[in-house]
Amino acid sequence: MDSRIKAKLEKSWAPIFYKYVFCNIDEKPFSVLYSDTGRANFPVNILLSLEYIKHLKNYSDDELIENFNFNYLINYAVGIRTLGGMNLSEKTLYDFRTRIYKYLIKHPEQEDLIFGQFLNLTMIFAKEAGICMKEQRIDSTMFMSNIKKAGRVALAFDVLYRAVKSIPEDRLSENLKKFSTLNLGQK
């Protein structure tokens, strides 16, 4: 890759997403989705990352698949360094979403898989930004019921994005400063 292009890539959102989201997704909790039939046919960390990216970029499923196939930034963000190395179909996305939904319905007492990832990623961001998580606003205790109503992936990304945007600039690491200055089409 030309050094000027590589420098632009390194300043984009993709390496930040890769480091702080993709690399921190724990696939182990998702193994319960495949216990009867074996392993997932597509990496869970890529599928979950693509759900975040879909909402980040406001893509339809068709646009998400097209960008997965041809957009190097999307591939870089999900740990793929060669375009066309993996095939993603609509059915793969739909099956993943269906398995998560059915698991949540059958096991309401278990931790919500998406919410567990949300908490994990939030803690990583808080640690990186030096935010103390011991104090909590009283209205923030009601958010779990709202998460069940809203799209969990969209909500998780929106909260993470807004959390980074709310950190005082002098408390941000260099990587988070890059992320907070991006215009990602968020409200």
Rank of each mutant, 00 (worst) to 15 (best):
A129W: 00
S31C: 01
G38E: 03
G79M: 13
K28T: 14
R152K: 15
L48E: 04
Y59V: 00
Y52Q: 09
L47K: 08
Y52A: 01
T141C: 03
N45I: 02
K127S: 05
R4L: 13
T181N: 11
V159N: 11
E66G: 04
R137A: 11
K148H: 08
F68V: 10
M123T: 12
N183V: 05
N87Y: 11
P15Q: 03
G38R: 08
I53T: 02
E51T: 05
N175M: 09
A126Q: 04
A163R: 06
R171F: 01
N67G: 05
V153C: 07
E66K: 15
K106T: 01
A126Y: 03
I5E: 11
L113T: 04
I114E: 02
M86D: 07
Y34R: 09
S12V: 08
A77M: 11
F70N: 15
K57T: 01
K149C: 06
L160P: 00
M144V: 12
E169L: 10
F68K: 12
T98S: 12
T92A: 12
R39L: 03
Y59L: 15
Q117P: 01
C132S: 11
D158H: 14
C23W: 00
Y101P: 00
R152L: 07
I124P: 04
I16T: 12
S35I: 09
K127I: 09
L73W: 09
I105K: 15
V44D: 02
D62L: 11
V44M: 06
S49I: 05
E128V: 05
D36C: 00
F30A: 02
A129V: 03
